[in-house]
Computed example of a mutant assay.
Amino acid sequence: MGGNLMNRVRYCCQLLIIVACSQALAAECKRVVFSAHPNYPPYHWAEGDQIVGASVDVAKIILDELGMPYESRFVGPWKRVLLNAEKGEIDLVLALKDVPDRRQYLEFTRSPFYENPVAVFVPKGHEFEFKQWSDLKGRHGTLNLGDRHGEDFDLYVENELDVLRVAGLEGNFNALVNERSSYFITGLYTGRAYLETSGLKSKVSILPNPVSTGVIHFAFSGKSPCLSLMSYFDKRLEELRLSGETGQLLEQNIERWRLYFSPPLLQEE
């Protein structure tokens, strides 16, 4: 009787192991679906139903090296991208700030993707001295809806500054040049890329001192089976950044953005 019971226990344990192994195999990473902010050039932006840009180019380099199939997916506004990652509907979010609330559902790479200096943009002719955050007090500014610029500065904005969050680069820069705001804070490269194509470059100045000089990371959804790729991403992100290749891709994508959004020249009839 005791022997039969032990055999049944052993059989059940073996069965559980087989089921667990089958589930693990089923959950293996077979394809990486990635997305990003749809309007943050030259790091990334939406073209049709895809996300393109420097961060996408880097992700493709790494995934091609791994021989891993992938899909660049445009899912909509930035908040929806993060919600999709939280649900596990996308595996990888490209080039975003590592902040505490996002760590609840995202696993960030240890190695940064690239620097993301954050600048103060002002109307031409209305420059002011900016050496520290307190120099922004007493002025009305804007921030891009959903953008985060580091835990310390985010708290300072919330508690000390008169700032309105506006959706999209176009809305923020229009408020600036129409003098409905005194300053707009966004990524230096992103602001530069937008001004190259908007016709507003001559109407906007960039203050010389940055708000911050932080970095941005890639992040896997905590529910993604592709978390197993993290160590390779860490290794290659570091190598590509230190070799200068990531910086070159960033500059190339500023030009790509400019060409993509420049109106075609009219042909003489």
Rank of each mutant, 00 (worst) to 15 (best):
S22C: 13
A26W: 14
V33Q: 10
F34N: 04
F34K: 04
H37K: 11
H37S: 09
P38K: 01
P41S: 01
P42A: 03
P42D: 10
Y43R: 05
A46R: 13
E47W: 07
Q50L: 14
S55A: 11
V56Y: 06
V58F: 05
I61K: 11
D64A: 03
D64P: 02
L66I: 05
L66Y: 05
G67Q: 11
M68P: 04
P69V: 06
E71T: 10
R73I: 00
G76L: 08
K79Q: 14
V81T: 13
V81I: 09
L83N: 14
N84V: 00
G88M: 10
V93H: 04
D101G: 00
R102M: 10
R103Y: 06
Y105I: 05
T109E: 12
R110A: 13
S111M: 08
F113K: 00
Y114I: 11
Y114W: 14
E115V: 14
N116V: 05
N116M: 12
N116H: 08
A119D: 13
G125W: 04
E129Q: 15
K131L: 12
G141A: 02
T142A: 09
L143V: 09
L143S: 05
H149Q: 14
E151N: 11
E151A: 08
D152I: 10
N159Y: 07
N159Q: 15
V163H: 03
